[in-house]
Design a protein around this nucleic acid. Structure first.
Lengths: 122, 122
DNA sequence: AGCACTGTTATACTTAACTATAACACTATA
DNA sequence: TATAGTGTTATAGTTAAGTATAACAGTGCT
């Protein structure tokens, strides 16, 4: 949600108890997850108020996740694709479409540019 | 290994105890995994002899894994790729190379066509 | 002051997966 | 027949993750 810009920096994360209810999960479990974000310095916890997304978090997440994905996940995925002999066509078929044919997709927009700063440094 | 043709149909799987030692894992754990293959009808167990790969197993595996991958894994992976804004170039960079430039790759061959029957039905 | 939200801590319990050990059952082969 | 390989079963222990309950601690608003 942070990467997608649904949650912006400075915003509070959905409360521990709310998430617990929504996903039918123990509040402790949610807390533990949130604490990891605190430990990574991505989020700040304010007792009585909520947990707030730090400035710069989106870019850190983006960079970190990109690195993790390309370094750890993708190699195995690529290997699997080869092993199964899957073609680009097959892969692009079963993929969720963003826009039908499109040329300039902007209509559900407005503040549809959750970039503010950076986006090109990596 | 079955899909890759390292193990051919009719061959025995590496013995439960051997695998357990090689991967530093409890024999029971290996057995349980092997039993799943038996339950799926891919492998036959012969007490005192070993567990043998049934005929047709490679194709069943190929079909099954293709379906599972395209139906369950790939959609999430594709979504992640979009979310992270990864480009085809970035993806193809971190990927293991099969052959340098190649045009017709056959040299480490001989019985390098573990196809026998089918390969095109899906 | 009281209430309704936040995060946090403590204690004990449940569960699934895996481990450790040992024995049993079967087959081929020297 | 002995031996060294196979798969299989039984029993008990370990571990990590999640659960259940309850209470504690802080903030803002009426």
């Amino acid at each position: 949600m942070i990467i997608d810009g649904v949650l912006k920096e400075g915003d509070p994360l959905p409360s521990v108890r709310n998430v617990a209810v929504e996903y039918r999960v123990n509040p402790l479990t949610v807390l533990k997850g949130y604490q990891q974000l605190v430990d990574e310095g991505l989020v700040e916890s304010k007792r009585g108020l909520g947990m707030f997304i730090n400035a710069g978090t989106r870019n850190l997440l983006l960079k970190g996740e990109r690195q993790r994905f390309l370094g750890e996940e993708w190699p195995r995925i690529y290997e699997t694709i080869q092993r199964l002999g899957l073609t680009p066509e097959e892969l692009l078929d079963g993929a969720p479409r963003r826009a039908p044919t499109n040329s300039a997709s902007s209509k559900t927009a407005k503040s549809n540019a959750p970039d503010s700063d950076s986006e090109k440094e990596r």
